[in-house]
């Protein structure tokens, strides 16, 4: 889960207390391999594909997904990172810090962008990412791959490739990484 979510849930920061394991590291890897096949199935020729991991939770999954796509297709595929701090709609409501670098290695004009993130929740991060991406060129299409879709959308946004659909309550919290998926809650430090 993003550091941002953890530090902003409570004024002094919060700790994630796991209550249930939803998926193991192996499950997550298998899920990413399946998603890579789905991407390849949909696009066949992946010459105009670029994989972009969202800072910070989407970076590791994007590396694995990229690795699988390169293996399946036999092509080199550009891989980038995106931080959406400057595009968020909650600036002014709470402090927003850039978490890490943005690095889009190619001009996105005419490209298919595969955005990768850990958890799809309200959809606001993805909204910010869509705005950010338009500043790098006019992509032919933008698609979204996430490890977990936990529901509770606040915007008309959906994922194209989902590792696991996980119904949750708003009070719960989800920690998803390449090491596994945990359900839990945030508690003040």
């Amino acid at each position: 889960m993003a550091t941002r979510e953890r530090t902003h849930a409570h004024p002094k920061g919060a700790v994630f207390v796991p209550t249930a394991e939803i998926a193991s590291a192996g499950d997550v890897r298998r899920g990413l391999t399946r998603m890579a096949h789905e991407v390849f199935e949909r696009h066949g020729d992946v010459h105009d594909l670029v994989v972009v991991g969202l800072q910070t939770g989407g970076i590791q999954p994007s590396h694995l997904l990229h690795e699988q796509l390169v293996r399946i297709s036999g092509h080199e595929i550009p891989l980038g990172t995106l931080d959406v701090a400057f595009y968020r709609d909650d600036i002014g409501l709470r402090p927003v810090l850039p978490e890490a670098a943005t690095d889009i290695p190619v001009d996105l004009d005419g490209m298919v962008v595969l955005l990768v993130d850990d958890v799809l929740f309200t959809g606001r991060t993805i909204r910010a990412a869509l705005n950010a991406l338009t500043d790098f060129g006019r992509a032919r299409a933008i698609e979204l791959a996430v490890l977990v879709d936990r529901g509770h959308r606040e915007l008309p946004i959906r994922a194209d490739y989902v590792g696991k659909n996980l119904p949750t309550s708003r009070a719960e919290s989800v920690d998803a990484s390449i090491d596994g998926i945990m359900l839990g809650r945030l508690e003040p430090k």
């Binding site: 400057f86 595009y87 600036i91 810090l97 850039p98 670098a101 705005n131 500043d135 790098f136 060129g137």
Partner: peptide, 27 residues
């Protein structure tokens, strides 16, 4: 150090073709 680090993020924005971000829109 925090300001210098955030400035590094903005230095990246400055290297883009499109150098504007909506962070302080309305301010």
């Amino acid at each position: 150090v925090e300001i210098l680090n955030v400035a590094e993020s903005f230095a990246e924005v400055e290297r883009r073709t499109m150098k504007k971000v909506p962070a302080l829109k309305g301010k």
